[in-house]
């Protein structure tokens, strides 16, 4: 399911039709703004991200289910912050004191990470990897000593590869469950049984992919030919993203 959630989903929405350079710039600006934003601003930003997900006709509930393990990671971050930050303890717990300021800090950090992740998923869902590659190439072209084509292709392949790894992880997990892995209590051993074959499979797949790319003449001289054209809609979207950044910073 995660593999299906993370990846391009074709639809005819205005976000799909937006210039990819604008989407990338908006994502960078909003991520930077979230670093300075407070709780209220993060709640606003997450709400905007969820509204946009609905707008681009994505099954929001299914996405959130796909992110359940990421949610566990975020919960872990909140817990560690709450346990390690000095301050007034919550709920009067003496043995494992969860501090109020630590909980606040942890929630803020988790909110920022969730916001950036949701925007990343939004970008991946509405943009073809080939377009992301072209946009990265466009941004890197003026930077001296950076092989912009190779860098852009690497990013494009990474985006292409994530759903494959997630699908393989799901298959591997199902195969382990079919052989009663759930009966093992030690989570470390369960993780090892999942990760070692998955790593091996990922490397084998990467190897086969490289061979297939080579067979199809992959090299540094490729057609780029992406027609860049900024329209009023693109400028408006950029202004909107800038406005959201300023609002987030103003709310604090």
């Amino acid at each position: 399911m995660a593999a299906v959630a993370f990846g391009y989903h074709h639809a005819a929405t205005w976000l799909h039709g937006l210039d990819v350079r604008v989407k990338l710039a908006a994502m960078v600006l909003l991520s930077m703004a979230s670093l300075r934003a407070g709780g209220a601003a993060i709640v606003l930003a997450i709400s905007v991200a969820l509204l946009l997900l609905r707008h681009v006709r994505q099954p929001v509930a299914r996405w959130l289910v796909s992110l359940r393990w990421y949610a566990v990671l975020l919960a872990g971050i909140v817990l560690v912050r709450a346990l390690t930050t000095p301050g007034e303890p919550l709920f009067g717990m003496s043995r494992w004191p969860l501090s109020g300021p630590g909980m606040e800090e942890g929630l803020l950090l988790a909110g920022r990470l969730l916001f950036v992740t949701l925007f990343g998923l939004l970008l991946a869902a509405t943009t073809r990897p080939s377009q992301i590659r072209s946009a990265v190439e466009w941004y890197l072209r003026p930077v001296p000593f950076v092989p912009h084509r190779q860098a852009a292709t690497m990013i494009g392949l990474l985006v292409r590869f994530i759903p494959v790894i997630l699908t393989q992880a799901t298959e591997q997990g199902e195969a382990l469950r079919a052989r009663a892995i759930d009966n093992r209590r030690n989570p470390l051993r369960r993780t090892v049984f999942l990760c070692m074959p998955l790593l091996r499979r990922t490397f084998v797949t990467a190897d086969r992919l490289a061979l297939a790319m080579e067979a199809r003449c992959y090299g540094s001289q490729r057609s780029t030919g992406h027609p860049w054209r900024m329209t009023v809609r693109d400028w408006s979207a950029l202004a909107g993203a800038g406005g959201l950044c300023l609002t987030m910073l103003a709310i604090g």
Binding site: L157, R160, R208, A215
Partner: peptide, 14 residues
């Protein structure tokens, strides 16, 4: 060349 494992030959997202 068309490889045996079509999955590992697919590069594009569409």
């Amino acid at each position: 060349m068309v490889f045996q494992d079509a999955d590992s030959q697919i590069v594009g997202e569409t």
